[in-house]
Design a protein around this nucleic acid. Structure first.
Lengths: 138, 138
DNA sequence: TTGTTTGCAAACAATTTGCACCGAT
DNA sequence: ATCGGTGCAAATTGTTTGCAAACAA
């Protein structure tokens, strides 16, 4: 039951929030969705939820730590269900596919660079762009 | 003379283009400017150049490889004069200061990750966010 | 009931574009 | 003279907000 997660996050349990959370959980692969896409899925399920609400709910989810927002190059914001582990992203320039990965060497290195430059690191984003296995061939 | 660079890039030599290129070259430190900022500098130099033109020219410069466009988290696009070497960025969340760095370990590692996932890497962006030496104290 | 949340339409900010005029070659 | 370049204002796009109605607790 996602009502639990919502209440846990200090959010009142409402239909839009439950529905949107379900949609995010339903995406086994393709975990990265734009607000627009979430909205379209809602429409396709005959839900009467406005796009503005989708944005509001996703923003609240982000504040609550339930989802993470990303700004991929050139595009709009995409949202993904938050996970315990930190990970970075690699995206296909042709089909938009997104894969995730974690690399401890890079993580450590980032910290060292920040230290060397005297920065107190709070966040970081690493995005690789290219052509995925499938799109390379064609 | 930047007229040379322009002609070289296949761009006709016009006042707005020369002026904007000069402004970019003038920024010794603070090499990263938004279109808006370039526009304001132009105004402060009493140039009659529209904001739309600034965007158009910067986009052309990008296409010509003269400048690089970045999308920092949350903010607008920033442009910097292209350099021979590749580098990444670390930005202060408080004052907006941007520092550049290069790290070969990370570069190599990125390539390896892409290979492992079967991607043909075309581009990448690494952005670190934190508090700069100056802003940490206050 | 009572403070939240939603839907809709209007507001916004950043960026792009249409078009008549201007300017470089 | 020609054709691309520019200014301005209007259009687009992605996202946010104001407000009255609907809703969860």
């Amino acid at each position: 039951m996602e009502s639990h997660d919502l209440r846990n996050a200090g959010l009142k349990v409402t239909l839009p929030r439950v529905k949107i959370l379900q949609i995010l959980e339903k995406q086994l692969n393709e975990r990265h969705l734009t607000a627009e896409k979430v909205y379209k899925i809602l429409l396709s399920e005959n839900e009467e939820i406005g796009l503005a609400t989708v944005y509001r709910v996703l923003t609240q989810f982000e504040a609550a730590g339930l989802v993470t927002r990303h700004h991929f190059e050139g595009g709009n914001s995409v949202f993904e269900l938050a996970t315990a582990d930190h990970h970075d992203h690699i995206m296909c320039m042709k089909c938009g596919k997104v894969d995730e990965f974690t690399d401890h060497v890079i993580e450590t290195r980032q910290k060292e660079i920040a230290d060397r430059l005297g920065y107190e690191l709070t966040d970081h984003g690493l995005y690789l762009y290219g052509f995925c296995p499938h799109c390379r061939k064609s």
